[in-house]
Write a protein that binds this DNA or RNA. Structure first.
Lengths: 163, 163
DNA sequence: ACTAAATAGGACTGCTTCGGGCCTAATTAA
DNA sequence: TTAATTAGGCCCGAAGCAGTCCTATTTAGT
């Protein structure tokens, strides 16, 4: 994960503390202690990707597009870096010519999926307060009810955000 | 994860298919389909880090320092890249000045720990064959009683089984 | 002893990415 | 109209990284 993405989680968490409030870039910069241009760049990206709603002009600023409980870490990461993948081999086929590579690739895909599930279940709401150990464990096993197989964590946000 | 590290997992997995055999760099390059200089660099690093044993001279080469079951993905990654961490904020304190950052940091540490546990439980032996879904799940909850990690019946085809 | 096969260890280079900052529009409340 | 604010680029320096190559050093075989 790039540093910018790391900052993005800090920024989003900070904003999640008052989800109904309008936050200006300068405001967020002060609250997080990050440099203004950096924060500005992050906010722009997140808005373009649909995680934030922006309002221009005086008294404008940014606001969470959804409630903190409906925004996952995975969404933030994807918004900043594009599709998540631990290995490049996981996304570009045809790299490993022999069968050797194939089992590795298949397994990396599985591992990726597991990590993604975890990241998709952790929301901004979680990030605003310490995650307990029990919660952490339930993150990973939690297939629970089958109705939520189509997990909100990894899906793309609304339309109009795609370049 | 850098591409080199990705390749390293491929290389190690390939070698894990015949753990008692001595592998020359050229040999591994052919089996994996990677460029020789690249493979060579990877093998040197892994040997320096103690995951491989090297033998110089003619008929020399590299061999796994331990059995495939005793080498985890986490070890390979650490050998190639140093300490694993998703965020830099997780390792360098004093970045986030306000309380805002602190809860984020604490949570990232927890998430890191979870991912690390998963990566630490996946061995080269696992990588040589498809990881089943059940195995994958047991990776993450995997409490104390770990007699299950002990999978017998891994009789490996003695030698020269590599196409 | 000599040669061929290997690894060890650097040095080097071209490339990309990334963090960070700045500048000029467009937009809107007062 | 003016001040506040986002949008969208552009740019630069630094760092990391993939990939290659060169020169020792070591060892097996002849």
């Amino acid at each position: 994960m790039s540093k910018l993405t790391d900052y993005a989680t800090v920024v989003m968490t900070s904003m999640a503390r008052s989800p109904d409030h309008m936050h200006s870039a300068a405001n967020v910069a002060v609250q997080t202690g990050l440099a203004l241009p950096t924060v500005s760049k992050i906010l722009k990206t997140l808005a373009r990707e649909g995680l934030l709603v922006s309002v221009r002009g005086a008294k404008g600023g940014y606001m969470l597009a959804r409630t903190p409980r409906e925004i996952s870490l995975a969404q933030v990461i994807v918004a900043m870096e594009g599709p998540i993948g631990m290995t490049e081999c996981s996304s570009t086929p045809g790299l490993c010519l022999l069968e050797s590579g194939c089992s590795v690739r298949a397994n990396w895909l599985r591992i990726n999926h597991m990590v993604l599930q975890v990241l998709g279940r952790i929301t901004l709401e979680h990030m605003t307060k310490p995650i307990g150990r029990t919660v952490a464990i339930s993150m990973v096993k939690a297939p629970a009810s089958r109705k939520r197989l189509h997990e909100p964590g990894v899906s793309r946000p609304p339309a109009g955000a795609q370049p």
